[in-house]
């Protein structure tokens, strides 16, 4: 009996069985509808981009873990989700080397240098997209990306069209088309319905916080409505903003990323609302057609500040007897 070594650990001795892998697996499941639609919609190249993005992101994670002699965290699938999200936000025609560079930036510069999962102050995928947009905007231009495709709908990126042509461009986009993915855009970001279904699944599973999603969407709608009501002929209607571009994928999958979003209720509401507000500000008065990426990065940036708003801890403020 003396040689039987027991396990000694600290309470609690139970765990609810939740894990990072579970979380990411659920993210994966939730992303599937939109991703599958993207593959169906944009064909084999889309599948290639998604597969390459996911696998290269995981590969970068492996390479960096080996280089820095850190524990391999690939089994968590964290990088896979980063890569998949990256793939879903880019056009299906993106050259392979741009995808690999993008996932490198996302995984390494977005996450790894900050100390890995949980430490990234910004959403890694968005860091990748933002830096790529700054460097090689041509590869992320949806209008040129799909020139060789034949679509039975207006093959214009709705937001770019809005920016370039003003409100009369809106006529070519119906809300139903936008919702059903009849638009050009990122592989997985066009199918609004799929994103909404996946997102709701994620919320129900408890892996995305509904407060953020709801307030984000509210931010978009309220701000867009304000603009629209004031100048209906200059600005697009709120639903258009909600259903076009990255708005939905941003609301359901990007803004809710754990380590760059708040955990307390009021900050979550502020965070989401601010994100929605910024998107509309950028779209309506800024220079970028779709401000989702930078808007979410901006709320990521203010997250540490607003997340200090939290309920009083037990006994705080009670005079010490």
């Amino acid at each position: 009996m003396t040689n039987t070594k027991l396990i000694v650990s600290h309470a609690p001795f139970w765990h609810n069985g939740d894990s990072l892998f579970q979380q990411n697996l659920n993210f994966f499941i939730a992303l599937l509808p939109a991703a599958l639609f993207g593959i169906f919609h944009f064909g084999a190249p889309a599948l290639g981009v998604l597969a390459l993005a996911t696998s290269s992101a995981m590969l970068w994670e492996v390479i960096m873990s080996v280089l820095s002699k850190k524990k391999m965290a690939i089994a968590d699938m964290d990088s896979a989700i980063i890569g998949l999200l990256f793939g879903m936000m880019v056009p299906a025609t993106m050259p392979w080397w741009v995808v690999i560079t993008g996932t490198f930036i996302a995984v390494v510069l977005g996450k790894f240098v900050f100390g890995g999962t949980g430490a990234n102050p910004f959403h890694p995928t968005l860091v990748g997209i933002a830096i790529l947009t700054m460097s090689w905007p041509a590869f992320l231009d949806f209008d040129t990306a799909y020139v060789s495709y034949q679509f039975d709908f207006t093959a214009l990126a709705p937001l770019a069209a809005l920016k370039a042509q003003g409100t009369y461009a809106l006529a070519s986009f119906s809300n139903y088309d936008l919702l059903m993915g009849n638009e050009v855009g990122g592989i997985g970001s066009t199918f609004g319905l799929g994103i909404i279904i996946g997102g709701i699944y994620l919320i129900l599973k408890g892996y995305a916080r509904w407060e953020i999603v709801a307030s984000f969407i509210a931010g978009v709608l309220i701000t867009a409505t304000l603009f629209f009501v004031l100048h209906p002929d200059t600005y697009a209607p709120p639903l258009f903003h909600l259903l076009s571009g990255y708005t939905l994928i941003g609301a359901f999958f990007l803004a809710v990323e754990n380590s760059s979003s708040p955990v307390n209720r009021i900050p979550m509401l502020i965070y989401g609302f601010l994100g929605g507000l910024m998107i509309i500000l950028v779209r309506n008065i800024g220079i970028y057609p779709d401000g989702t990426v930078l808007a979410i990065l901006l709320i990521n940036l203010v997250n540490p500040l607003i997340d200090t708003i939290r309920p009083k801890a037990l006994g705080k403020g009670v005079p010490n007897a």
């Binding site: 820095s68 510069l109 240098v113 430490a119 830096i131 008065i285 220079i287 970028y288 930078l294 808007a295």
Partner: peptide
């Protein structure tokens, strides 16, 4: 943070990210 990147190095990279984020205001 990986050892070689600690302190100033990661500080600069973070600052770079913030500079990136601040481009959101461009043209406003």
């Amino acid at each position: 943070v990986p050892k070689a990147l600690q302190d100033t190095s990661i500080g600069l990279i973070t600052a770079g990210m913030i500079a990136l984020v601040f481009t959101v205001f461009r043209g406003m």
